[in-house]
Nucleic acid binder design. Structure first.
Lengths: 201, 201
DNA sequence: CTATTTTCTTATCTTTTGTTAACGTTTTAG
DNA sequence: CTAAAACGTTAACAAAAGATAAGAAAATAG
C-alpha cells in the first residue's frame, strides 16, 4: 500500500470526528509520518515515555503489561483505530504498558510535539482541540463500558458478550490473550468455553 | 453556601483545565445553573437520557446499576468532581446507570443544550472544545487505570491499593459499596479484610 | 520439511469467591 | 424514642478460578 492510499484511509476515518477543509488538511497532514511496525516490534514500552500517537492503516497491536514476570494482555487495536500509550502521551510521564505489533503493520503517526504545534497554530487550533475532544470522548466511553463489564458481569458473561460483539478479537487473537483481556487465566477461559458448549448441547 | 461562593469554587477548579478571561467567564457562567440534590435523589436514571453534566460543590454521589434486582455500585464522585451519566450525555441515548446523591449535595450544572450553544458561540467555541478535551482526557485516564487494575490485579491487591490511594472512598463509603466498586461481593471483601489483618499481626 | 515454539485442552489440587443465612451493631425514619 | 432498615462479620457449603503439569495439535522459523 502506498502512502497516498494510506493517507486517504486515514482522512476518511477522521470524517467521523472532524471535517478538515483543504487548507487545514494540508497543514495537518504535514505533521503526519508513515511508519511500518514489524511483527513483535514495539510502538511503546513500559518505563519509557511514549510521545506519539498512531493510527493503524493495516495490521494490529496488543497492549500488555508484565507482572511477576508474566505477560498480561490488556487490550487490542486493529485497522482504523488509534494506538498509543495514552496516559504516557497525555501526561509526558513514562508509561506502564507495552504496545506491540501482532503482525507487520502500517501506521500513520504524529508526535506530541506535532500535536502541540498544531494546537498552537491559529489555523488549526480550534479543529485540533475538537478532534482531541471527540477522540478522547470516544475512548472514554470504551473504557467506561469495560469497567462496567468488570463490575457487573462474571467472566463467563463477559465472554458471552464477546461472542456477540467481539468478532474481530475472537477471530484474530489467540485465546490466552483474550483470557487476559477478560481478566482471567487461559485455563479458566478454556473451562468456560467447555461449560458453554455443554450447556448448548 | 451561597451561589457566588459556589461559583468561585467552580471557577477555581476549572483553572486546572482552562483559564477563562473575564468576558469569557461571563458568557460561560450565564449557562450555569445551581441545583440542590437531596440525599437519595437521582441526578440520572437508567433508561432515561441524561442531558446534563454537574459539578459537585458540596456532597457526594454514587453510580450504580441494577442487575438481577441487585444494586451494584460502580463509582463514586465527591467534591470538585464532575458527574453525569457520561455515555448518555455524550451520545444522547438512554443511559444504563443511576447517579444518586449520598448526602444533600450542591451542584453546578449545565445541559447538553447549553454546551452545544457554547460550542457554537464563536466567542466561546475554542475554549469549550479545549475544556471538553481536557476533561475527557482526564476521565479517560481514570477509566484506563481502573481497567488495568481489573486485568492485572487480584481483588485483594485492588483493595490494598485503595488503602493507599483511596482515603476518601474508604472513609466516606459503606463497605458493601466499596466491594462492588472492587468487583467483588461484600462478604468477600469482609474476608479479604480479615486476611489482611491476620497477615499484619 | 523438520524441529521448535506456541496454543489449547484437560486433570488435579488449592485457593478464592459466591451464596445464603444468622447474628449483633449501627443508622435511619417516623 | 422506638421500630425498622441497613451494615458488617462470620459460618457452611457450593461454584468458580488460580496454579501447575502433561499432552496433543497447530503454527512458526530456519
Amino acid at each position: 500500500m502506498d502512502s497516498s492510499t494510506a493517507l486517504n484511509i486515514f482522512r476518511e476515518h477522521l470524517k467521523r470526528y472532524i471535517d478538515f477543509n483543504e487548507a487545514e488538511w494540508i497543514l495537518f497532514s504535514q505533521h503526519l509520518s508513515f511508519a511500518k511496525l514489524k511483527k513483535k516490534h514495539y510502538f511503546a514500552e513500559s518505563g519509557k515515555v511514549c510521545n506519539k500517537v498512531g493510527f493503524i492503516v493495516k495490521g494490529s497491536v496488543r497492549y500488555f503489561q508484565i507482572k511477576d514476570g508474566e505477560d498480561i494482555t490488556g487490550y487490542f487495536s486493529f485497522e482504523n483505530e488509534f494506538l498509543s500509550s495514552y496516559k504516557s502521551y497525555l501526561t509526558g510521564l513514562p508509561g506502564h504498558v507495552y504496545v506491540q505489533a501482532l503482525e507487520d503493520s502500517l501506521l500513520i503517526t504524529f508526535t506530541r510535539n506535532d500535536m502541540d504545534e498544531m494546537l498552537n497554530d491559529p489555523m488549526l487550533a480550534y479543529k485540533m482541540e475538537r478532534f482531541g475532544r471527540l477522540i478522547a470522548e470516544h475512548y472514554l466511553i470504551c473504557n467506561e463500558d469495560r469497567v462496567t463489564a468488570f463490575v457487573t458481569q462474571t467472566p463467563e458473561e463477559r465472554y458471552l458478550e464477546l461472542l456477540n460483539t467481539g468478532r474481530e478479537i475472537l477471530q484474530r487473537m489467540p485465546q490466552h490473550y483474550i483470557a487476559n483481556y477478560l481478566g482471567i487465566t487461559p485455563v479458566s477461559l478454556s473451562r468456560i468455553r467447555k461449560r458453554i458448549l455443554e450447556t448448548v448441547r
